[in-house]
Design a protein around this nucleic acid. Structure first.
Lengths: 104, 104
DNA sequence: ACTAAAGTTCGACATATTTCGAATTGTAGT
DNA sequence: ACTACAATTCGAAATATGTCGAACTTTAGT
């Protein structure tokens, strides 16, 4: 835990985003607002696992695996709600990633 | 017109950044400027391939492979200058990546 | 032309990733 | 209790990746 460097942690995030299916899932969760606007915490977009996979043409087990990877990387939160499991992205995660690339 | 979607293109960038060695290389270059210019007044930063690998403890062939991956993903530019090959990151690449995550 | 330095390419090998189907778990409604 | 639905776990197979050393290329200096 203490020997888990910042570089490794961030590389883990990028690895989670390096698969086109996972990036599509993440993009879907990310794009809760129109460009130029910001989601407030209340307006966080939540999809259940099944909805997220719509149109991706992958098996449920594969979808589950990918979401788990996104979750393990700290990019996506998951929480059971009844029969479904809800997924969402914390705005702070996006802030942190944007800040990594922001220059000057 | 191309069958190379935006998602796939961006996933390719994140894949290039998903390896800790490559992310370390990119991070080093991120603070650099275009060739022939200076990052800041204090330290002149000119990274040839060999310098980039300093402290990473990987074979030259592995280093070369990683830089090639970063270049293929469109993240790093490379240009021969005498015996060395100079590497740098275009600011627009950082802008594009930051914009992807920035929701404000 | 010869040599050394800086990188690249190639071939090989070990490890990791992606994906699926089958079986399983958890939840809600009948 | 039974059934249907949502999602996960497991095991296996094909493919991709990371790494190295050896051989090669390109350039600068002698």
């Amino acid at each position: 835990m203490s020997n888990f460097s910042t570089i490794d942690h961030r590389a883990g995030m990028f690895k989670a985003l390096s698969n086109p299916h996972r990036l599509a899932l993440f993009s879907r969760l990310m794009s809760c607002c129109a460009p130029g606007t910001r989601c407030n915490a209340e307006k966080e977009v939540r999809f259940c696992v099944g909805e997220l996979g719509d149109g991706l043409d992958i098996a449920p087990s594969t979808l589950s695996h990918h979401l788990k990877e996104l979750n393990r990387a700290g990019l996506v939160n998951m929480e059971r709600r009844g029969k479904n499991i809800e997924c969402w992205v914390e705005p702070s995660v996006l802030d942190s990633l944007a800040a990594f690339f922001r220059q000057i």
